[in-house]
Amino acid sequence: MASRIENGDLLNEYLGNKSQRYPLQGDLISEASSLDDFIMDKEPIQQRLYIINRSGSGEAQFVLLNQKRTSIESYGVRYETWKVTKGISNFGVAVVENVLYVIGGYDVKTCKHLHRVVKYDPYDFTWTECSPLLKARAKFGLAVLNGKIHICGGERSDGQAACSCEVYDPGTDTWTDGGVLPAPRKNHSCVLTGSSIYCAGGDYGLRSHDNFWIYEDGKWAELDQDYPHSLPRCVDRYAMCTVGHKIYFIGGVSCRVNAAADDGRFITERGIFSYTLAVSTVRRHKAQGNSLQSEVLSPWTVRYPSMVRPRHGCAAQAIGRKIYVFGGCHLETGQDVRVCECFNTDRGTWEDEFHFRKGDLTNVVTAILEVPRRHDEQKINYKLKWVLW
Score class of each variant (00 low, 15 high):
308 V>H: 13
14 Y>W: 15
298 S>H: 15
200 A>R: 01
203 D>M: 07
388 L>R: 13
200 A>I: 03
277 L>R: 06
240 M>C: 15
163 C>M: 11
64 L>P: 04
367 A>P: 07
268 T>N: 02
187 N>P: 03
308 V>D: 14
275 Y>W: 07
216 E>Y: 07
36 D>Q: 08
247 I>H: 02
332 E>I: 00
143 A>Y: 00
222 E>W: 05
156 R>Y: 05
338 R>Y: 14
54 R>L: 14
177 D>R: 02
259 A>I: 11
45 I>G: 06
234 C>A: 07
222 E>F: 14
1 M>F: 07
261 A>C: 06
96 V>H: 00
73 E>T: 05
83 K>E: 10
51 I>R: 00
223 L>A: 06
326 F>G: 02
220 W>M: 09
44 P>E: 11
180 V>R: 11
339 V>A: 02
182 P>M: 01
131 S>K: 04
288 Q>N: 12
368 I>M: 10
389 W>T: 10
188 H>Y: 10
131 S>N: 08
301 T>R: 15
180 V>D: 12
314 C>Q: 04
49 L>T: 01
274 S>F: 04
119 K>G: 14
96 V>N: 03
249 F>Q: 04
194 G>A: 14
303 R>C: 07
203 D>S: 06
322 K>I: 07
279 V>K: 09
333 T>D: 12
49 L>H: 01
269 E>S: 07
351 E>D: 07
208 S>E: 06
322 K>L: 11
68 K>I: 10
339 V>M: 14
371 V>A: 14
272 I>A: 04
183 A>W: 08
377 E>L: 15
188 H>M: 11
276 T>L: 12
192 L>I: 08
141 G>N: 03
